[in-house]
């Protein structure tokens, strides 16, 4: 008893065109975002150099005076705010006088090293967060008993905690990973307590009508439904893991990472301010790249859930 009237309604677009439209919309969105990002960076640079143009110290090229700002505000001097070209140029100078290695190469190596620690902390921390959240959503009692401590743990300043961890576990990469882990588990735990409860209650009724065991409800309903929350928390965790690793490196005695580089360059800030700025930019880029990777995995994983997902 096939009935032609039951075929797809005429108004519905074919799957191919839907997919094309979604992808095209995505491209527009990306290019719009890119333009917006360029615009904000441009605006910041304009204020930076504009301030130096009006209030900075005399501009020189090869010792010759090329511009004398009409006003003087100490904040805009070349130590506080080096010229942008000085900072960018810094990337292509030796990282230390008399060395072969250029600063950008040196920073890239340090960033990769820091990323290793951050990445491990990220893995451990998000796994711990996921397990804790899973326990808490299955037991109100444990949730009430332990969530306050999870929150309290994050009120301890990391600069107070880092020396404690290092004195307990020694100056090692393990201690640095632990500090990163510590910063990562929190956003994941809190977001996943919410995420694992974000399923449609009617879907739970559906699962119960199948006499579904708890395990299947977790794996087939709660966990997949929580993924948007999971990825949001992972993006926070990615950047937090890098901050944790950098902060942990200095007291942790790690010589090869961005943390040590930042400490060294800040000690020599007066003689080479652009180097610290370069290190700051490198740290920011590392955070952005990590964040971007998670966002990429997120987009791939959640593809198919539709525009709202």
């Amino acid at each position: 008893m096939s009935n032609p009237a039951l075929a797809a309604p005429a108004g519905l677009a074919s799957p191919a065109t839907v997919g094309m439209r979604v992808r095209a919309a995505g491209r527009v969105l990306v290019s719009r975002r890119a333009r917006l990002a360029l615009f904000t960076v441009g605006l910041a640079l304009l204020f930076w150099e504009g301030g130096k143009l009006l209030f900075g110290v005399p501009w020189r090229a090869d010792g010759a005076l090329i511009w004398n700002p009409p006003f003087r505000i100490p904040f805009f001097n070349d130590i506080n705010l080096p010229h942008i070209w000085a900072v960018l140029g810094g990337f292509f100078q030796p990282w230390q006088r008399g060395k072969e290695l250029l600063l950008w190469e040196y920073l890239a190596g340090a960033a990769l090293f820091t990323w290793r620690e951050a990445g491990l902390g990220f893995l451990f921390g998000s796994a711990i967060g996921l397990v804790l959240a899973t326990v808490f959503v299955h037991s109100r009692l444990l949730e009430r008993a332990f969530v306050p401590y999870v929150i309290a743990s994050q009120t301890i300043p990391i600069i107070a905690l880092a020396p404690l961890i290092i004195s307990a576990f020694g100056q090692s990469m393990g201690s640095v990973v632990l500090i990163a882990t510590y910063l990562v588990f929190f956003p994941v735990t809190i977001a996943m307590i919410r995420g694992l409860r974000s399923f449609d209650p009617r879907a739970l009724e559906l699962m119960r009508s199948y006499a579904s065991p708890r395990r299947a409800i977790y794996w087939k309903l709660r966990l997949p439904a929580s993924l948007p929350y999971f990825f949001t928390s992972l993006k926070i965790a990615a950047t937090a893991s890098i901050v944790g690793a950098i902060i942990g490196e200095a007291p942790g005695g790690i010589q090869n990472g961005l943390g040590r580089v930042i400490v060294t360059f800040s000690n020599y800030y007066a003689t080479g301010p652009e180097k610290l700025w370069c290190a700051v930019i490198a740290s920011a880029l590392l955070g952005l790249v990590f964040y971007g990777l998670i966002a990429l995995v997120e987009a791939r994983t959640l593809r198919g859930r539709g525009p709202a997902g």
């Binding site: 559906l206 087939k220 309903l221």
Partner: peptide, 30 residues
């Protein structure tokens, strides 16, 4: 518990992370 019931609600309550086929397979997986 013997899976004697099939339920259909007012809302379809489909799992948006599964394909159409995957949604129909859900009870069969369980």
């Amino acid at each position: 518990l013997d899976r004697d019931y099939g339920m259909v609600f007012q809302a379809p309550v489909l799992f948006d992370w599964r394909t159409v086929q995957g949604n129909v397979e859900l009870p069969l997986e369980i």
